[in-house]
Amino acid sequence: MKTIKAMSIAAVAALSLMSAASFAQTVTATSLTLDGAEAKIAAQAQQDGAQYKIIEASNGNVVHMTAELYK
């Protein structure tokens, strides 16, 4: 009985992690400016009907930005 409960709990935990991950999508954009890179990410989010959260931005010769889209 304890084994069945443990397996059920593990299955529920795995499914909840998978469902949360299936809603998030990572996108990247490059531009000469921060505003330009964010505009590209915002356009992608709007096209997908999602919101976005910027998780990384780096600046060298160009700006590289990564964001997660979520609904």
Rank of each mutant, 00 (worst) to 15 (best):
33 T>Q: 06
12 V>M: 08
8 S>I: 01
17 L>E: 07
30 T>A: 10
47 Q>V: 04
23 F>Y: 10
37 A>T: 05
33 T>S: 02
30 T>G: 08
15 L>K: 00
13 A>L: 06
45 A>C: 05
34 L>D: 15
54 I>P: 03
25 Q>N: 05
10 A>Y: 05
49 G>H: 08
23 F>C: 07
28 T>A: 14
20 A>I: 10
59 N>M: 06
29 A>D: 14
23 F>P: 02
24 A>C: 12
48 D>A: 14
16 S>E: 13
48 D>P: 01
33 T>F: 00
20 A>Y: 11
44 Q>S: 12
51 Q>G: 09
26 T>A: 04
53 K>A: 08
19 S>L: 14
55 I>Y: 08
16 S>H: 00
58 S>N: 10
44 Q>Y: 05
35 D>H: 11
12 V>Q: 12
43 A>V: 07
56 E>V: 00
18 M>P: 02
20 A>F: 03
37 A>Y: 08
29 A>I: 02
53 K>M: 05
36 G>W: 12
12 V>W: 00
46 Q>E: 14
18 M>L: 13
10 A>F: 01
9 I>L: 13
63 V>G: 09
9 I>A: 12
22 S>Y: 01
19 S>N: 13
10 A>C: 08
35 D>E: 15
16 S>Q: 00
22 S>A: 14
54 I>F: 02
47 Q>D: 12
61 N>T: 06
35 D>T: 14
48 D>S: 09
60 G>N: 15
27 V>Y: 09
54 I>A: 04
59 N>C: 04
37 A>D: 12
25 Q>A: 12
11 A>Q: 02
61 N>K: 12
57 A>W: 06
24 A>V: 15
30 T>S: 10
54 I>G: 03
34 L>G: 07
57 A>T: 15
39 A>V: 05
28 T>S: 15
55 I>F: 06
60 G>P: 05
24 A>K: 13
51 Q>M: 06
19 S>E: 14
52 Y>E: 02
14 A>H: 00
58 S>F: 01
25 Q>L: 11
35 D>R: 13
62 V>K: 09
59 N>Q: 11
63 V>T: 06
60 G>E: 15
25 Q>S: 11
48 D>E: 10
28 T>R: 10
21 A>Y: 01
23 F>W: 06
26 T>S: 02
11 A>P: 02
12 V>H: 07
51 Q>N: 12
22 S>D: 11
19 S>Y: 11
7 M>F: 11
20 A>C: 10
21 A>G: 08
